Amino acid sequence: MTYSNATDFTNPSTFILQGIPGLEIVHVWISIPFCTMYIIALLGNFTILFIVKMESSLHEPMYYFLCMLATTDLVLTTSTMPKMLAIFWVNSREIHFSACLAQLFFIHCFSAIESGILAAMAFDRYVAICHPLRHSTILTNPLVAKIGLAVVLRSCMESLPYPFLVRQWSYCRTNLISQPYCEHMAVVKLACGDTRVSSYYGLFGLFCVLGLDVVFIAISYMQILRAIFRLPTKEARLKTFLTCGSHVCVIVIFYIPTLFSSLIYRFGQNFPPHVHVLISNMYLLLPPMLNPIIYGVTTKEIRGRLLGLITHKSSRVFS
């Protein structure tokens, strides 16, 4: 395997993933928390999907959106973690050009899908709190399916240009990517010539997809807060607000690392490379790991079903 710095990489057959620059000597140790987080993400999201499927009382819009979120998290983290762990464990840093483009597409597409699902969940909370008597008639199963399909189509259409833009550039500097996975701007930085189209389109995707979702979520929660403050008692206001607590936590965990990482790529040249890479990994690892934990702990129906499964298995073991 040759990690080359030759002068002609026009449409290179492979890229080399560096891992975490400056911390290569401790890759094995870094892999321990990364692998643990990945396993927790897999177990947690599969558990959410299993519980919602098995419990007919959870066949409601909120839990359908939660299943969409769990599926998205599984795809998002699995598109990067196996290769990342291979880099940490066996120094398998080479990735085929086409595989790099596929990974790049999946990262951006499913990040956009997750953002859209969080916006849809905000709409569900808005209807449930502001129009509780009409919730079942507004958010019907066909409408939930149409929302999910619209989110997927929007994300695919927005993400599809990324690999095509990357493929058109010539790579005359190096084929070494200073990341453990293929990210759009990390690959574009290796290209020669004027790559402003890719940079501008990346900003367009950031602000016109994630940005619009954030605006929609903010408007939804403004209406929710108005409805909450109209409630007659403090206890009622607190109880109603707590029904949104898990969703608010998930929003913060997803958007802050995502926006921070995207902006550092363009404007944070003074950040140490390993700090930037670690932050970038957080938006791929933290939401898939923490989302099922947050909803499992804060949602009474899921928590009760999970405890029932655990106690049932325990009683069978000791019977």
Rank of each mutant, 00 (worst) to 15 (best):
C172Y: 14
Y265N: 14
V187I: 15
E301Y: 03
P163S: 09
F271D: 12
C244L: 04
P272K: 08
V275W: 02
R237T: 10
F164A: 01
L225V: 14
I217E: 06
R226K: 15
L238Q: 14
P287H: 02
C249V: 01
S261E: 04
V197P: 06
Y201M: 13
R237M: 11
L259C: 09
L212V: 08
R303S: 03
R303G: 03
I279G: 02
V250M: 11
T240S: 03
V187R: 11
F207L: 06
A236F: 08
P273T: 13
V209H: 07
L238N: 13
S262C: 10
L259H: 05
T233E: 06
I219F: 15
G296C: 06
V209N: 10
Y201W: 05
F204G: 10
H274W: 14
R173P: 07
Y295V: 11
R226A: 13
L231M: 09
L190G: 03
C208E: 09
S159Y: 00
M185P: 03
L290K: 02
S178H: 10
S199T: 15
S262G: 13
F260I: 05
L231I: 03
L212T: 07
V248S: 08
K189T: 12
G193Y: 04
I224K: 09
N270S: 15
C208R: 12
A227Q: 10
I279N: 06
F267Y: 14
C182L: 07
L231R: 08
A227F: 13
L206Q: 01
L238Y: 10
